[in-house]
Simulated assay, not measured.
Amino acid sequence: MAEPMVPNPRHVRLKQLLDQTEDEARELRQAYLPAIHSMTSGTVWTGPTARKWFADLQERQRQLLAIAQRMISAVEEELRRHQPMVTETMANSIRHEMAGRT
């Protein structure tokens, strides 16, 4: 008789991590928007220093979003390496490994 298949604990945890990472990436996309909208309105601060500061702000936002996307891609890649369903025996082994009890 074949052993029953159960959700892979590592796959489940990676899926949770992916969801969390995507949520945080969405927050990062929104984090700079108030300052960007204010600066593009031209009513809060103008001049050469303001333009330099705004350019720096946009570059930092771009870098943060690139880092967030790399994190999402890394988790997605790791998620693809693990089957969603495994045998009960394998799931128990994975749980022990994840708990540091190999």
Rank of each mutant, 00 (worst) to 15 (best):
L79S: 01
I94D: 03
R10I: 10
Q63N: 11
R60M: 15
S41H: 02
K15I: 01
P9V: 07
E59V: 00
Q58A: 12
M1V: 06
A74F: 12
H37I: 05
A35Y: 15
L18Q: 04
D56A: 08
E24W: 12
H37C: 03
A55R: 12
R29Q: 15
D56C: 05
F54T: 09
T46C: 04
A35T: 08
Q61G: 09
P84K: 07
P48M: 11
Q20C: 09
W45K: 11
H11G: 05
V6S: 05
D19V: 09
R29M: 10
L14A: 14
E3G: 00
H37K: 10
P34V: 05
A2H: 10
K52H: 11
E27M: 13
A50W: 04
M1T: 10
V75N: 06
M71L: 13
E77D: 04
A99S: 08
S38Y: 04
R95M: 05
H82F: 14
L33T: 07
R26E: 15
I36E: 09
R10C: 05
H37M: 12
G47D: 14
I36T: 06
E3R: 11
N8P: 05
A68H: 00
M39I: 03
Y32R: 09
L65Q: 14
E3S: 09
Q69N: 15
V6N: 09
I72S: 02
S73D: 09
M85Q: 13
S93P: 00
E88Y: 06
R95V: 06
Q63T: 04
R62G: 04
E3P: 03
L57R: 07
R81K: 13
T87D: 03
A66M: 08
L18N: 10
R70E: 13
R60G: 14
N8M: 07
L17M: 15
V75P: 06
I72E: 11
L14H: 03
E97D: 13
I36N: 02
W45P: 03
L33D: 14
E24S: 13
S93A: 08
A68Q: 01
T21F: 00
E97M: 01
R29W: 08
G100H: 03
L57F: 09
G47V: 11
E27H: 15
I72F: 04
V6E: 04
Q61D: 12
E59S: 06
R101N: 06
W53R: 06
L14Q: 08
T49C: 01
D23E: 12
M90N: 06
H11Q: 02
A68F: 01
V75S: 04
H82S: 01
L28R: 15
R80K: 14
P34M: 12
T49A: 14
L65G: 03
E22K: 12
A74M: 04
M1K: 13
V75D: 05
L18S: 09
F54K: 04
V6I: 11
M71R: 13
K15W: 07
W45E: 05
T89E: 11
E22L: 11
V44A: 11
D19T: 15
Q58E: 09
H82W: 08
T46W: 00
V44D: 06
G47C: 05
